[in-house]
């Protein structure tokens, strides 16, 4: 399957030299007597890097074989993270480098979006928010409800996070997985 340049638009996923890209910006250009072209900025879906690429109207552009599946985090083995499709029990492994800092926020059975390119799992995206238990922090000052003063705390994965003074060991907090920052305390159980 392939696209023509006229199909280009923001958000379109394309394949160039075996690498999937997403179009993040595009502009129609045409020198007066010249051919129509599309100046694009494209994002490498595997590495997250961006580059500029100009397509001519006559160019054929490959359509990447990409699919996204909801899979649950199963377990970690060495530097591999294993995710499982809870319906088919299909399992995939992703290397620590691919999971990146998101690995600190994984929880058993947490449902994540795994992106497949040519049937190979390439990247994973966690839900925007996860709930984690505080494992280490200095005792909370009772009655201090200020949220703008932070102290260091650790969660089960060893990740260090700034939390308000009133947070204690055993408390559950909501974390934004995109920024790695504390959002709020949650009542658990």
């Amino acid at each position: 399957m392939s696209y023509t340049a006229a199909d280009l638009r923001k958000g379109l996923k394309i394949e160039l030299e075996g690498i999937p890209y997403e179009v993040t910006e595009f502009e129609f250009v045409k020198p007066g007597k010249g051919q129509a072209m599309y100046k694009c900025r494209i994002k490498n879906m595997l590495l997250g890097t961006t580059m500029d690429k100009t397509f001519r109207a006559v160019d054929k552009i490959d359509q990447p074989n990409i699919e996204s599946k909801t899979m649950a985090f199963s377990y970690k083995e060495g530097d591999k993270y294993v995710f499982m499709d809870n319906k088919t029990y299909e399992q995939v492994e992703l290397h620590e480098n691919v999971v990146g800092d998101q690995r600190f926020f994984l929880l058993e059975d947490l449902e994540c979006e795994v992106l497949f390119f040519n049937h190979r799992a390439m990247t994973v995206t966690l839900p925007a928010f996860v709930i984690k238990e505080i494992k280490e922090t200095e005792p909370g000052a009772r009655g201090n409800t200020a949220t703008n003063v932070l102290k260091p705390a650790k969660i089960d994965t060893g990740y260090e996070i700034g939390v308000p003074i009133f947070i204690n060991v055993g408390d559950f907090i909501r974390i934004d997985t995109r920024t790695g920052k504390y959002v709020e305390r949650v009542k658990q159980g």
Binding site: V29, P31, G34, Q35, M37, K39, D52, T54, R56
Partner: peptide, 11 residues
């Protein structure tokens, strides 16, 4: 080279 001309002109 018409293709190269147009591409280099705009980029």
């Amino acid at each position: 080279d018409p293709d190269r001309f147009d591409l280099d002109l705009v980029t």
